[in-house]
Design a protein around this nucleic acid. Structure first.
Lengths: 202, 202
DNA sequence: TAATTTACAAACAGTCTGGTCTGTTTTTTT
DNA sequence: AAAAAAACAGACCAGACTGTTTGTAAATTA
């Protein structure tokens, strides 16, 4: 019969909790219903958070969506870096990228964000920045994977890095198509063809 | 001082005119402001067509957008078929695809449509169908370009055709990125690398 | 020319959205 | 314990959107 009289949750905990609930719901709704249908009301309803609480943390819709964009790349980056730290070769790295692309809904959300950002100046800045840094990280990872022994890199642009960037763009194109044609194995087949071709030249 | 008393325009002409005005404005607005901001009011205003006239030709927003989707592929197809009928090799064909991709705004509109269709069942059907037929046509064109002498094709899927599909997906990924990063020459460089690699194996 | 159909015009109703505003509860500070 | 601040709750409003409806002008048909 003893209840703690001291606060059950600190302000920090409360804040972080609802903030995360909102971000999670935002990503889920973007994935399930598309960017433009991710309205505040729908997000709040889905998250079980009141409109007022949402206003407190994200005063405008733009602020919430920008935070979501940042959340996407943050998670994607941690997928990449927490993953297999040592990749033997480029093919293994490409396989890894494939998994990171199609195993969760992050990249779909990212594509939605890129399309939305195209016609939204303030969003475009954020997406462009985060995308550039993310792309740089992937290029570096790919270069490292293709040449595991060389720890020091001199040039900012090698052919391997370009191949990584091409592969990322290709994967995004495949994601785009996956949204309409749901045959994933067909895309897998195509991607393996590409992987084989690249392995030959790299 | 003589004015024709007979009708200046036939019904057919009037219909076709406003219909085209609406479709053109729709595509322009999708390109400039994005799919979800292409509202009936904005489109009518831009086209100089009254809300009532629009209602007469396209009773619902969905019907107008679906007609626009069909218009996109129709124009894209005519770009492809009216273009250089005889392409010498695959590289020339890829260059041709590059031009068709970045010379007008059709592919941006198409990417917007694909993203919108992902979360819109009825739109998805249309986009999936038109995309499939369009893709088939491009695969065939590519196969023809790579082997100009063989008029008869037996298999439905050759490696060359797969390479064409990969290239189309890549170009879409590049379009996606072009919406956010506006450096086209960088993408051109990457695409030429791609072309060199792919043409080697074909 | 008269009747009918097609094309166009504009107002209206109902819904949804984002931002604001006022008030309440919970935690922290004094 | 009292005061202050942070987190939360929900009503409200002005604007935008789609679809409908009623009415008018132009073209076609009888």
């Amino acid at each position: 019969m003893e209840f703690a009289k001291k606060p059950r949750q600190s302000q920090q905990e409360r804040s972080a909790l609802t903030r995360n609930k909102l971000l999670n719901s935002t990503l889920q709704i973007i994935d399930a219903e598309g960017w433009h249908r991710a309205s505040m009301q729908r997000i709040c309803e889905h998250a079980g958070v009141s409109r007022g609480a949402q206003t407190h943390h994200f005063p405008t819709r733009e602020s919430l969506l920008i935070a979501s964009v940042r959340e996407i790349v943050k998670r994607y980056q941690s997928d990449l870096t927490e993953g297999p730290i040592r990749l033997q070769n480029l093919e293994a790295f490409f396989d890894f990228l494939w998994d990171a692309t199609f195993n969760d809904n992050l990249l779909i959300c990212w594509v939605e964000a890129m399309v939305a950002a195209r016609t939204d100046a303030s969003l475009k800045r954020v997406v462009a920045d985060t995308d550039a840094s993310s792309m740089t990280a992937m290029r570096a990872l790919g270069a490292e994977a293709s040449q595991p022994n060389g720890p020091v890199r001199i040039r900012g642009t090698s052919q391997v890095e370009d191949l990584v960037e091409l592969t990322v763009c290709l994967l995004r194109g495949l994601v785009l198509q996956q949204g309409v044609h749901h045959d994933l194995s067909e895309k897998r087949r195509l991607f393996e063809l590409w992987t084989r071709i690249v392995a030959e030249v790299a």
